[in-house]
């Protein structure tokens, strides 16, 4: 087993996903299947090989720190599930 049911439940929590028990069971099996296929990576000696996070050698795209027009407030709030016309409204935090 690469990943236990408990570990899968923990990962779901980290990802803010609530899984039904049957769904968590199924996912645990599937994740084990997928992760087993990734064992292949361990066969390779990568000592001293630098990692690649980005395929192009682009660095430091800088621009002037200039003020530019941004979206008007009404448009920014247009897709809000709940708003009071000035802010996004969320359930009580504390």
């Amino acid at each position: 087993m690469k990943i236990s049911y408990e570990e899968a439940a923990h990962v779901a929590k980290l990802a803010r996903l609530r899984l039904e028990p049957a769904q968590a069971d199924k996912l645990t099996v599937e994740l084990n299947d997928i992760l087993t296929n990734m064992d292949k990576l361990g066969q390779l000696d990568t000592e001293g090989v630098p990692p690649t996070y980005h395929a192009l050698a682009l660095t430091g795209a800088m621009r002037e720190d200039a003020v530019r027009p941004s979206l008007p407030r009404e448009q920014s709030l247009a897709n809000a599930p709940a708003s009071d016309g000035e802010s996004f409204i969320v359930p009580r935090v504390i």
Partner: peptide, 12 residues
């Protein structure tokens, strides 16, 4: 074991 390793194999 996963993300770090995969990023190195990506280089290869």
């Amino acid at each position: 074991a996963y993300y770090g390793k995969a990023s190195q194999v990506r280089t290869l």
